[in-house]
C-alpha cells in the first residue's frame, strides 16, 4: 500500500504527463490555429469601424496573448517530443526549421515590444543636426537608444510630385554623416546606421527665412529659418519673432500666380514661392500681405521679408533590436518550408 505522500506525487506526475501530452498534441495545434484565424477575422471586422489604435489595443487583450502563448508552448513541446525524428533527412529538418522559426519570430516581436524606441528630428537643408533640443520633434527629445545620436548635415532634399497632384513620386534627402560618408534616404529606403538602428525619412516641409529690419535704416534686427507645417498649400502655421513682440501666421504658395480672384499656386513645386503673412501683436492684427521673394511688409517701424525658402526634412531615428531577429525567423521559416515541400514532392513521386 502506497503512502499518501507517494500517491500525491503520483497524481501530480500524472497530471504533468497529461498536460505534456495535451501540449504536444496536434489536435491542440489545430484548435489554436483555427482560433488564430477567428481572432484575426474579428480584428479585420473591427478595423472597418475603428481606427488603428483601437484595433491595436484589442489585439493586445488577454485572449490574444493566451492564444499566442499557447501556440508557442504547443510548438515547443511538439518540437521537443519529435526532436529525434526531426533531424533525419531534409524533410524533417524543414519541419523543425519552419516550426522552430515561430519561437524566433516570437522572440523578435518580444524584443520589439520591450526595446523599440523612435524619435523624430526636423532639420532644414544645409543645417547640421547636433542633437540640440530644438531639433527633436516635441515629445521625442533625446536619442532613442539612450546613447549618442548620429551627427549629420542634410545636404539636399528632392521632392517630386506627379502632374502637380498630391502624389509623391520621389522624396529623397541626401545626408552627410559625420565620419560615415553620404547617404540617400527615401521614405521606403532608410539609412541603416547599425544592425538595430536606422534613420528614416518621414516627411518634409518648407522652412522660410524671415528677416525683420528697421524700416528707416534697413538694418536687420532679427533673421532666422522657421520650420513650418505649411505643406500642402492651404495649410497655415505660425511663428513668433524671438526678440520682437510679433507673431506671424504663414501660408506658402510654392508657385505663386496672381489671378483676378487673387493669389493662387500654379503647381506644388517650389518655383516662384510667395508667403502669405498676417502679423499680430498679441491679438491685434498689424499687417497682412502676400510677399514674393524680396518684397516687404511694413508695420510699427519694422519691415518683414522672406528672402529665401528651403525644404526641411522630418527624419526618424529608430532603434528596434527585434526586427533583425524577426527577419531571421522569416528566413528560417521559408528555408524550412522549401526543404519540407521539396522532400514532400520527392516522397510523393516515390
Amino acid at each position: 500500500m502506497s503512502s499518501p505522500l507517494t500517491s500525491a506525487r503520483l497524481r501530480a506526475r500524472l497530471a504533468l504527463f497529461r498536460l505534456w501530452r495535451l501540449f504536444g498534441s496536434f489536435k491542440l495545434s489545430v484548435v489554436l490555429t483555427v482560433l488564430l484565424a477567428l481572432y484575426h477575422g474579428l480584428l479585420a471586422i473591427w478595423a472597418r469601424s475603428s481606427p488603428a489604435p483601437v484595433v491595436q489595443s484589442i489585439a493586445g487583450l488577454l485572449p490574444f496573448w493566451l492564444v499566442y502563448g499557447l501556440l508557442l508552448a504547443n510548438t515547443a513541446v511538439c518540437l521537443w517530443r519529435r526532436l529525434p525524428a526531426l533531424v533525419r533527412g531534409a524533410g524533417p529538418l524543414g519541419t523543425l526549421m519552419f516550426h522552430g522559426s515561430f519561437l524566433v519570430i516570437a522572440l523578435g516581436f518580444a524584443a520589439t515590444f520591450v526595446a523599440r524606441r523612435e524619435a523624430g528630428i526636423r532639420v532644414a537643408v544645409g543645417e547640421a543636426f547636433t542633437g540640440d533640443v530644438e531639433q527633436w520633434v516635441a515629445g521625442d527629445r533625446g536619442a532613442p537608444v539612450g546613447g549618442t545620436a548620429p551627427r549629420f548635415v542634410v545636404e539636399e532634399i528632392v521632392p517630386e510630385l506627379w502632374d502637380d497632384a498630391l502624389l509623391f513620386t520621389e522624396l529623397r534627402a541626401r545626408i552627410g554623416l559625420v565620419n560615415a560618408g553620404k547617404r540617400d534616404v527615401r521614405i521606403n529606403e532608410p539609412a541603416w546606421l547599425g544592425l538595430c538602428t536606422l534613420l528614416r525619412l518621414t516627411g518634409f516641409g518648407y522652412a522660410p527665412r524671415y528677416e525683420l529690419s528697421d524700416a528707416a535704416s534697413g538694418k536687420v534686427l532679427e533673421s532666422a529659418f522657421v520650420k513650418l507645417s505649411v505643406f500642402p498649400p492651404g495649410q497655415e502655421d505660425s511663428f513668433s519673432a524671438s526678440t520682437l513682440p510679433f507673431e506671424v501666421d504663414v501660408g506658402v504658395l510654392p508657385d505663386a500666380v496672381q489671378r483676378d480672384q487673387g493669389w493662387e499656386t500654379a503647381s506644388l513645386n517650389l518655383r516662384r514661392p510667395a508667403v502669405i503673412a498676417r502679423v499680430f501683436r498679441g491679438k491685434l492684427p498689424l499687417a497682412a500681405g502676400t510677399l514674393l521673394e524680396g518684397e516687404g511688409l511694413s508695420f510699427e517701424g519694422v519691415t518683414l521679408r522672406f528672402p529665401e525658402i528651403r525644404y526641411w526634412a522630418e527624419l526618424s531615428l529608430l532603434y528596434d533590436p527585434g526586427a533583425a531577429i524577426l527577419f531571421s525567423g522569416y528566413a528560417m521559416a521559408l528555408v524550412g518550408l522549401l526543404l519540407r515541400v521539396r522532400a514532400g514532392g520527392r516522397e510523393a513521386r516515390e
Binding site: 488564430l36 484575426h40 477575422g41 479585420a44 488603428a52 484595433v55 491595436q56 516581436f109
Partner: peptide, 13 residues
C-alpha cells in the same frame, strides 16, 4: 513590421 491593418489580419486568416 506589423500593425494589425485589415490586409494583415485577413492574410493571417
Amino acid at each position: 513590421t506589423w500593425s494589425f491593418d485589415p490586409i494583415e489580419s485577413l492574410a493571417v486568416v
